[in-house]
């Protein structure tokens, strides 16, 4: 409780929570579309499709905002792991999650104003936000406007590779989201990191 630093500007927190809501919505409705079956308790197909399309377009817009705001504010620099010793720092962080955390050790790299993310975090966030999410958004848009999909590919309908990429990349996002939410409980107290994402203040 002793030390507090203001880490996260309002726009970033607003983006974060809108992003979270949209992705959970998309995951639930996307799951309902893919596993559509009258016998399963899913969101009804036509409703799922309407929500998924709306949320998908919103996420595409929100992602554009995210990229622009990161460039304008200079926040993008946080996502770049700074050498030297990136791998060694990643290893130390991973060891902490696999071992140190059980013994009650302190976080090896607590956030500072200059380096909000530890090296592992920066790498994973960079991978998810700048590699996987764009794939989901772009394949989602092609799915929505299938006239832009190739006609045929490998003797299959051209939408198949688009759909597969969308499905697999969407799965990676969902896996990340599970781990991300869980790691949110590893602050000083179980809820302190969640509070930070609301107030912007980090407690050491």
């Amino acid at each position: 409780m002793s030390e507090r630093i203001y880490l996260l500007p309002l726009w970033l927190r607003l983006w974060h929570w809108s992003n979270a809501v949209l992705i959970i919505t998309l995951a639930v409705t996307g799951f309902s579309l893919h596993f559509a079956d009258p016998a399963l308790p899913l969101v009804e197909f036509s409703l799922a499709r309407r929500i998924h399309d709306l949320a998908g377009l919103s996420l595409a817009a929100l992602y554009t905002f995210f990229v622009v705001a990161n460039i304008v504010s200079g926040n993008w620099w946080q996502y770049v792991p700074k050498p030297p010793g990136v791998l060694a720092r990643c290893w130390r962080q991973a060891r902490f999650y696999g071992y140190g955390i059980f013994r009650g050790e302190a976080h090896p790299y607590p956030p500072t104003r200059e380096a909000n993310f530890n090296a592992l975090q920066a790498l994973v966030y960079w991978f998810i936000m700048y590699l996987v999410l764009p794939v989901v958004v772009v394949t989602g848009l092609v799915f929505m406007f299938p006239q832009f999909a190739p006609d045929q590919m490998f003797g299959f309908d051209g939408l198949l590779p688009v759909a597969m990429l969308h499905y697999l990349a969407g799965t990676v996002i969902v896996l990340f989201m599970c781990a991300h939410i869980y790691l949110g409980t590893t602050g000083v107290t179980v809820t302190s990191l969640f509070k930070m994402m609301v107030t912007g203040w980090h407690e050491h």
Binding site: H34, A36, F45, G155, F156, D157, L159, L160, A163
Partner: peptide, 17 residues
């Protein structure tokens, strides 16, 4: 069906799923 159309919910791969 997959040769002509990708039909969400119908043309999926049980092993991948």
């Amino acid at each position: 069906i997959l040769k002509t159309s990708y039909v969400v919910g119908a043309t999926r791969h049980p092993v991948v799923d």
